[in-house]
Design a protein around this nucleic acid. Sequence first.
RNA 1: GCCAGCGUAGCUCAGGGGCAGAGCAGCGGUUUCGUAAACCGCCGGUCGUCGGUUCGAUUCCGACCGCUGGCUCCA
Length: 575
Amino acid sequence: MTQETGPDLQALRHSASHIMAEAVQALFPGAKFGIGPTIESGFYYDFDLPRSLTQEDLAALEAKMAAAIAANLPFEHWTLPKEEARALFAGQPYKLELLAELPDERVSIYRQGAFTDLCRGPHVASTGQVRAFKLLSVAGAYWRGDEKRPMLQRIYGTAFPTGQELEDHLARLAEAERRDHRRLGQELELFSLHEEAGAGLVFWHPKGALVRHLIETFWKEEHLKRGYQLVYIPHISRAELWQKSGHLEFYKDSMYSPMEVDGQDYLIKPMNCPGHILIYKSRLRSYRELPLRWAELGTVYRYERSGVLHGLTRVRGFTQDDAHIFCRPDQLEAEVVGVLELARYMLQTFGFSEFQVLLSTRPEKYTGTLEVWETATAVLRRALERLGQPYEVDPGEGVFYGPKIDIKLQDALGRTWQGPTTQVDFNLPERFDVNYIGEDGREHRAVMVHRTVLGSLERFMGCLIEHYAGAFPLWLAPVQVALIPIADRHLDYARALAARLREAGLRVEVNEDKSRMQAKIREAQNQKIPFMLILGDSEVAASSITVRRRSGENLPGLTLESFLKLAQEDLAARR
RNA sequence: GCCAGCGUAGCUCAGGGGCAGAGCAGCGGUUUCGUAAACCGCCGGUCGUCGGUUCGAUUCCGACCGCUGGCUCCA
C-alpha cells in the first residue's frame, strides 16, 4: 500500500480542492469561498452559495473538474503585498477575514485556470497531475467551526496518485459501511433503538445482552483479581448532592431536569463519582486500608444534543465501566501503573493491539494549585515511563479538575476509537472532604482517580462489532454452534448431539427449518456462527460430526470429543 | 442545537393529488442427502405524528418526532 500522507499526497489533494473550487465558481458565479484544506483521507472546501447543493451537483462538479484536469493547466504561484490582495479578494468576505489575520506583509497566491486563491500551497505543477479523485458528500459546516457564525456548505472529496489507490480507498469505505454496527446490530439481533422510547436509548436483545453479559463477567472477574471491589449505587439522588459535587454548576447542560419526590428535587446521575464518595465517607478511613479500588458498571444519563446521537457510540443513557481509586499521594504512581496494565490486558483480550497514548496536561481553567498539578502530572509521566509506554503530550487538554491519560485504540480497519481514560481529580476530594487518618493520627486529603477501561459498554460494543465485523470470537459469540441436519431423519441425531454440547457448556442451536442444507448453511453464515455441524446419513452411521467453520474450512468425520477439544482451544485462546 | 437529505409491510426498497406495490422474512403446504437462497400459496400497511391546502392528501405546504451525513460538543 502506498504511503497515505507525505507532502506529495497533500499537494495532490490540496490541488484537487482548488480544482473543485474552480468548478464551483463556474457553476455558481456568486460563490463566496471559505477554506479548502486537506484532511486525513482527502480534502474539503467550504462555500457560501445561493442555494443548497444536491447529490446531482456533485456529478456536475466532477465533470467540470475532469475537464479542467484534461486541460492540464499550470498552478501559478506568486506573492502580493497585502494591500493588493485585499483588492483582489474584494468580493470575498471570508478571504478578507483570513487576510486580515495574516501577520506577513506579502501573502501567497495560487491560480489555476479561472480560479485564484489565497493559499500557502504547495500545489502540484499542473491540473493534469490530479487523476484519481472523487467527490463524496456535502455537509453544513460553521465558518471557522463557530456555531454563532454563518453555516457554509462543505464538499468532501478525496484524491489519490493512482486509480487503483482510489478504488482501494472506496473499497475501504464500503467495507466500513458493511461493518457498521447499526446495520449488524439489526441483522444479528443484538440491539435496537426506538422512536417510541426516545432518541439515544438502547434496548439490548437477547443475543446482544448475552455478549454484554460475557464482557461484563470478564470485566468483573478481572477487576476482582486485581484488588478491586464492586459497589452499586442508586440512579437518582437529591439535588443537594449534585450541588455539593459541583455538577449542577459545571455539568448542568448535560443533566436532565429534576423530578420532585416528597417536595424534594431528585436528579438522574450523569456520573457515578459522588455515589462512590458517599460510600467512602460512610466512616473514617485509615491510611492502612488505602488504596480502595471501587468498581461499578454504572449506568448514567446525559443530555446530548440531538444531532450528535449515533447508534451505540453516542447515546443518552449508557453504562460506564467505572472505578474510583482512593489512595495516598505516595500510592498514586503504582495505582496508575496498575490501571494502565489492566487497560492493556483487557484491550488485548478483545483483539486490539495498536494504541496511541496521550497525556493531557493542565488546561487554562483549572482548580487546585500549580504545585499539585505539577506533581500529579509528573506522577502520570513516571507511570508511563515505568511501563516503557510511548506517549504524546496533549498540552492543555486535561479536565479542569486534574491531568489525565487517554488511550486511543485502532480497530481492524485502522480507525481510532476513544478507549480507556485515567483522570486524577483534585476537585471532588476538596468538595467532599475525602480524607483518611494518617500514621500521625491526623486527617490527610486522599487522592482520587477516576478511570474507565472500556469507556462505556455501549460505545465499546459498537466498536467491537465493527472491529470483528460482527463475527465475534468463539468466547463472545451468542450462538457458538449451529447444528444442521441435512434431512428430517437426522433431526434426532442433531438434538442428541446438541444436548451433549450444551452439557459441555457450549451455546448451540439446532436448525429445524424445513429448508435445504444449503439454506441452513447460508443462514448460519449470515448469523456469523463460528461452527456449523453438518449431519447426514454418513455422520449418523459413524456417530461422527462434520464441522464447517464460518471461514469455510471443512473438517469431516470428527468425533464429538475431538470437536470439543477444538472448541476448547479456541475458547482458551479467546479466538 | 445548526445545515442538508430522508421516513411507504418485520427488513431492503419502488411508486405517486383519485383501488397501496416488489423481493426477503413470517405462516401453511409440497419437498428435502452433502457445504452460502427448493417450489406453490397465504398473511402482512392509519404511507412517522399533528395541522393546513383541496371535492379528494400517502403524494403539495407547515410544525413536531425520529433517522442519516457533517458542524459544534463528548464515554
